[in-house]
């Protein structure tokens, strides 16, 4: 049960990060999966190789990912001037470099980040690993923080302005470069959080990223391109789907079912469940 919920949280984190970059920069960040994997490996290295405690390694990873996001925005995304073809080239190059690096130096062997807290807690016979509960709590806190950030803060208001009308926002003196840098930093940071969670809960290989990227795309499309709130509902739905259904069905069948659902929705209602016309 907690796995299902946690999976949902991870998808939502990834989806929100992806949507940040998509809505503000108009970039389909096909490197999102690679960032996710890199963060998981980064955290693994810090914990296993450097012996840092999880509570230090986790925030460090997220900060590093966010900093990396700022660099990527400045030196890779901005020079492409939002040209769709060029940005996907850059994303694929970035993704290739990251995945190849981990493939070369870590091997394709499945790894797992050791749990931050050992042991289980629970009521009566129902016992759950403590770190899962912790991860769930952290995830929820971060999601709430993101919602507050977008809805309440000045930066959030600016972001919404840019999403709606970039030229209009520019006329109001909002500097697009700053907003874009923040969006990519937040996007990468969220991907990193998702990556670390997945790394502690499941096995980690350099190729997990591709699978996750598909799920994220699925989520963003089901929610509706440009929709933000939809991601929370649909993320929960996908969490249930992928957390619970593989118990009774073959994984590939679940994938096929989910993607047929996406296709049907796209054809009937291209703007997604929560997109506006």
């Amino acid at each position: 049960m907690i796995n299902v919920v946690l999976l949902g949280v991870v998808y939502i984190l990834m989806g929100v990060g992806f949507a940040f970059i998509l809505n503000l920069l108009g970039i389909f960040n096909l490197a999102h999966g690679a960032i996710f994997v890199s963060a998981a490996y980064g955290c693994y290295l810090m914990v296993v190789k450097l012996g840092l405690p999880g509570f230090v390694a986790f925030p460090l990873t997220v900060l590093a990912a966010a900093a990396f996001g700022v660099l990527v925005e400045r030196f890779l995304f901005r020079p492409m001037k939002a040209d769709f073809n060029r940005t996907i080239m850059v994303c694929i190059a970035l993704s290739t470099i990251l995945v190849t690096t981990f493939n070369r130096f870590m091997g394709t062997r499945a790894l797992s980040i050791p749990p931050f807290i050992a042991g289980t807690t629970g009521i009566g016979p129902y016992k759950v690993e403590t770190d899962r509960i912790l991860a769930f709590c952290i995830g929820i806190v971060i999601l709430v923080a993101i919602i507050l950030f977008v809805d309440r803060s000045r930066w959030g208001a600016r972001m919404q302005a840019v999403t709606q009308n970039r030229e209009g926002a520019a006329l109001q003196g909002i500097r697009f470069g700053q907003i874009a840098a923040i969006a990519v930093a937040v996007g990468f940071g969220l991907a990193a959080i998702g990556g670390v969670f997945m790394g502690t809960l499941y096995n980690l290989t350099p190729f997990v990223g591709d699978v996750t990227l598909i799920k994220v795309l699925m989520l963003v499309i089901l929610a509706g391109l440009g929709s933000f709130n939809g991601i929370f509902y649909v993320g929960a739905l996908l969490g249930v789907l992928y957390g619970a259904l593989p118990v009774v069905l073959n994984g590939a069948v679940v994938d096929a079912l989910a993607s047929i659902m996406v296709l049907a929705l796209l054809i009937i209602r291209p703007r997604g469940f929560f997109g506006h016309e």
Partner: peptide
């Protein structure tokens, strides 16, 4: 972009059907 995403998932469905 809707066409691009639609075909992306079309490809994914085909691969999944093959795998299944």
């Amino acid at each position: 972009i809707y066409y691009a995403m639609g075909t992306l998932f079309l490809g994914y469905v085909v691969i999944n059907l093959i795998t299944a």
